[in-house]
Design a protein around this nucleic acid. Sequence first.
DNA 1: CTCACATTCTCATTAAATGAGAAACCACGC
DNA 2: GCGTGGTTTCTCATTTAATGAGAATGTGAG
Lengths: 258, 258
Amino acid sequence: MSTADRLLEILDLFTLERPGWSVDEAAEACDVPSSTMYRYFSSLSRSGLIAPMGKGWYSLGPAIMRYDRQLRLTDPLIRAARREMNRLAKSVAGRGVVFLCRLLGDQIMCISQVSTGDTPFTIGYERGRLMPLFAGSASRVILANLSPAKIAALHRDHSAAFEERGLGVTLKDVRETLKTVRNDGHFVTVGEVDPGMRGISVPISLRGKILGSLSIAGPRQGFTNAQIGQAVAELKEASSRTEEELHHIIAEGAAWRG
Amino acid sequence: MSTADRLLEILDLFTLERPGWSVDEAAEACDVPSSTMYRYFSSLSRSGLIAPMGKGWYSLGPAIMRYDRQLRLTDPLIRAARREMNRLAKSVAGRGVVFLCRLLGDQIMCISQVSTGDTPFTIGYERGRLMPLFAGSASRVILANLSPAKIAALHRDHSAAFEERGLGVTLKDVRETLKTVRNDGHFVTVGEVDPGMRGISVPISLRGKILGSLSIAGPRQGFTNAQIGQAVAELKEASSRTEEELHHIIAEGAAWRG
DNA sequence: CTCACATTCTCATTAAATGAGAAACCACGC
DNA sequence: GCGTGGTTTCTCATTTAATGAGAATGTGAG
C-alpha cells in the first residue's frame, strides 16, 4: 500500500460513529507502530486536516471547514442556483426544504440546502449527505439524464438495485422507464430516502450534460396534488433560470479556471 | 520532501482565488512531471478529496463536504451551543448574526453561524472562516483566557501585532489589558474584522480551559448602548448554558471518544 | 472514423518510508 | 518550584516504495 493511500485510510478512520481517535488506537486500527502513526498524524495536523482536541485526542481539523467554505463560495452550480433556491424556499416555507444535488463520478451528493420559516420536520437533506444512486427523486432525475453508455455500465454493475427499485429488469426496460422520467422533466417520490417524506425533483444540465438536480422535500401530507403540480412548475422555472445563470458564471470564467 | 507533504501541498493549491486545476498546471506549479502528478491526483480522487469537474479540470471533492458534515454533526461544542444560538438569533433578528468560534492550536475559526429573518448586511462570519488572532471581539475574549504561558509565547512571536492592536507593548502591559477583558467576561469592538460591523463576544470554557467564543455581529448602527448591554447579558447567559450542555454531552461521552 | 488529448501503465533507477528505542517535552499534582 | 506519567519527537541502519520518461491505452468531439 502506498503512503498516499495510508494517509487517506487514516482520514477515513474519522467517521460519524467514531469522530475522535488517539494515536495509539489509530496505530492499532491500521496495524502500524505508534512511532509511524505519530509521523502520519503530525503530517495531517500540520496541514490542518486533523487537529488535536486535547489530551491526545484528535478529530478532523480546521482545513476541512476551510476547504468546505471554499467549495461553497466557488462552486459555480451552488452560486448559480442560490437565488432561485431562496425564492423556492419562501414559496414552500414551513412545508418543505429546497436542496441541490450534484453528480460526482458515480455518486450523488447534496451540496446545498435552503429553508425559511420553521421546519418542524427533520431535515435529512444536508450539505455533504451522500444520496443513494437508485432511490429518491433527486437521484432519479439525474440517473434518467445520464448518457446511454453510463446507464448501460451502471445497469451491468447494479442490475439488482435497478430491479429492486422498480426501474426494470432488462436494460431495455430500464431505458424505457428512464426515458419517461427524462421526457416528463421531473420526478416525485414518497419515502424512498426518508420515511414519510416526499421528494419532488427536476434535473439541471449544462450544454446537454446532466450536472445535478434541484429538489423540494417535505412531509408527505404537506403537499396536495395541486401543490405538487405547482411545485413542479416552480422547480422547472428555477432550474431553467439556474442553467441560464450558470452560463453567465462560466462565461465570466475567471472564477473557475483561476 | 515527503510524499505526505506533497499530497497536502497539492490540496493547498486549491484556493478561493484558484479553485480549479488541471493535472499539467498542478505538475508545473509543484515542479514534478505530469506522470507523477497524475499518480497524486488519482490517489486524491480515489479518496474523494478532489474530483474531476469535466474536461481535465479538478476541484476539491465530495469527501470535503462529507467530512465537514461529520464535523458539524459530531462537534460537541457546536451541538452544545445550537439551542442557545438559535435563541440569540431570534433576539437579534434583522440586526445581527450569531456565530461560534473555536480555538484550534494557534488559530481561531468560525465553526457555526446562525441568523434568522432578513439580514440585509453581508455576513462575513461563515463557518470555515479563519479569524485573525489579534483583531475582533471573538478572538479577543479567547486570547484573554489563554494560559499565561501561551500568552507569553504569543507575545514573544507576535509582539508587533499586540502593539498594533493596542494590547500593550511589554508583556506586562498585555497581561494587564487581557486581565481586564477576562474580568469583564465580554468584549465589544467596531470594524476590526469587517468595516462598519460591531462585534460583541463572550468566552466559552470547559473546566477552566478556554474552548472558544460566542458572538453577535451586525452593523454598528444596529445597536444602541442599551442594546449592547442587553446583548452582553444574553450572551453570558447563553455561554453558561452552553457550558452546562457541554458537560452533559461529554458525560454521555460515547459520541466523542467513539 | 479519426484525431487530439487525457489518462494509465511499465520498469529500471533513485530516494524515501520504516520502526525500535532513546530522548525530549509537557501538563499536572504535590 | 520539582518530580512524575504520559505524549510526542528524534535517530539511524534497514527495508520498501516512489519516481519519471516514454509507450500504450482510453475517451470524447467533430
